[in-house]
Design a protein around this nucleic acid. Structure first.
Lengths: 337, 337
DNA sequence: CTGAAAGCGCTTACAG
DNA sequence: CTGAAAGCGCTTACAG
């Protein structure tokens, strides 16, 4: 029954008594009409009988369309990325495409190596979640006219389509919320300024709260958030409200607050960014800016797909952000301060 | 500078003044020694100068080795899977392999379609995290001698290598912990019995706590955990300790306890399973059985790789589970019961 | 409507 | 050490 190698188109053709070119046309929905109904039927029958699975590599070699795209993310275990990736996969799959996913861990050399590995698999384009504001590899990609879009983060090259959350608006909502709770001594624990998210959120914060304290975190991690928060409370002990660069930084901030013998939200309010999965189950439940990550992935995939079909100039997409108020923010306690 | 199509091996060969067969040998580390040092150097030089990226599809077509494996998971946004996938990717990458990842959402038809799509890309084998105890598709894969291993869950076919956590031991530890806290009215909210994890944990619970209440959840989700917990407390209101089938079921249980006006851990202790990311940040911090998911992925990838190299009969791997005690379990309150 | 032929970009026995 | 040739499994103008 099962021979050593999987059946080829030629095997199917022979079994159906036709030439492999005819079998090819019969099996491809786009060319089926070029073939008599009877032939199409016989070929399909033999194909299923033999368990024929077309060889995508061979087709790709011939047509130079692989129906694969590369997806670059920093780290899949960062809770931000699974929903984005899932959105990408869902939309790609609808179009018969496959995502080839790689982690870069923020390492430039590794990113370059992975990028080339993906090119050697002849992906038709890239979805990039690792963009930095200045990004030599992406400059190269632009020069070589390699189709790509960025997601969540952008790069400071013109003409690169991006799918982003409306970070500036999210920050404005967060600051307005804290103001409405009577907080006057605000601070921002900013994400890395090499990343567009860190930069945009910080600028929006400065615009909304001129003169307020800002400390930059070394990375978007709980540990970096903890360190930055310690520094912040050392320098500005009377801070009563913190806008964190993202939810992981917020988690680090919560730990720092606890270690300092203070309490969130009684003494200090904390707002995160992203609304990561299970943020509502934390202690305290995290007030945070929700960004529609799954949708972001879907839109990024769609944008790339559009780009691949028509070489037409593409646009960027800004998705709405929305403050979600939970337990980590409270009215400022009227006190001696 | 940049022509329309990417440079081929023949372009490089011509630029270096040799035949493409020679260029091929020069560029492949395994055959470089068949070529003079001078030629090897010249070819490499031209390759980098032209920005040559070998076409993996063409190579794969010729050698029938694609250096790709398919990975089947239920849903990437389930927090259990990112660490496993990351482990798989890390080990695969070390060997120059790539993972092709697909989500099945527990849908059998979809799984079959994805499976065939992956076969059409000529993956060399599969890592399956979607295994059910009875699994027609995997039976087919065994019959057709398609190399695969299962991870986290197993299937009831002999000869299929699996990488699993030691669930039975994890359950034993959890029950011992609850007993040590004086709990006598234990209950288990079991995972689906169609899955090896649900089945094995339930059997281990029955063995450790004969006669104790067991309710099966419809799925490994928070919602199903909530429903099952409501049912449990209706039937067995005096339950003081619950072992949940996994952490998501535990989260549903916590919500049910709250809705019933009771308190965890004061009234009811809850133990989860898996130690999902940020389980320590929940309210209350979740006592749970830690399973080394990243390592699990690494081992699964290694096992498949071994399998691909030597057709030798392979083995299974059982990784240690370890109870992590946090805030959701406490000594039973001496009361009127 | 169908077949014969060429070719996508590689690798690898086979000669020399 | 190097080259010429065949072939992996498809698709697609080109004839008929």
């Amino acid at each position: 029954m099962t021979s050593g190698r999987p059946p080829t188109l030629d095997d199917v053709a022979r079994a159906a008594g036709v030439h492999k070119a005819t079998a090819s046309r019969a099996l491809n929905p786009a060319t089926r009409h070029q073939v008599s109904a009877r032939t199409a039927y016989r070929v399909s029958l033999e194909a299923t009988r033999l368990g024929y699975v077309p060889n995508t590599l061979a087709r790709g070699l011939r047509t130079s369309r692989t129906a694969a795209v590369g997806v670059l993310i920093p780290d899949l275990t960062n809770p931000l990325f699974p929903p984005i990736v899932r959105g990408i996969q869902d939309r790609l799959e609808q179009h018969g495409y496959t995502a080839l996913l790689v982690n870069t861990d923020g390492d430039e050399a590794r990113e370059r190596a992975e990028f080339n590995a993906l090119r050697s698999r002849r992906v038709e384009g890239f979805i990039v979640a690792t963009a930095r504001r200045h990004h030599p590899l992406l400059e190269l990609a632009v020069r070589e006219r390699i189709p790509f879009v960025t997601v969540n983060r952008s790069t400071e090259l013109p003409t690169v389509p991006a799918v982003l959350g409306d970070d500036a608006d999210g920050v404005a909502q967060a600051v307005a919320h804290l103001r409405a709770l009577d907080h006057t001594r605000l601070a921002h624990l900013a994400g890395p300024q090499t990343l567009s998210t860190g930069y945009v959120r910080m600028r929006a914060f400065r615009a909304a709260a001129p003169g307020a304290a800002v400390v930059e975190c070394a990375s978007y991690t709980e540990a970096a958030g903890y360190d930055a928060a310690r520094l912040l409370f050392e320098r500005h002990p009377h801070t009563t409200a913190v806008l964190a660069g993202n939810d992981l930084i917020a988690l680090g901030t919560l730990r720092a607050i606890e270690d300092l013998g203070r309490c969130c939200p009684a003494d200090v309010s904390v707002v995160g960014f992203n609304d990561m999965p299970f943020a509502d189950r934390f202690r305290p439940p995290l007030t945070t800016v929700h960004v529609p990550h799954h949708l972001m992935g879907v839109q990024a995939a769609q944008l790339l797909l559009d780009h691949l079909r028509a070489a037409a100039p593409s646009w960027s997409i800004l998705l709405p952000a929305r403050l979600v108020v939970r337990g980590s923010t409270a009215r400022r306690r009227p006190g001696p301060t």
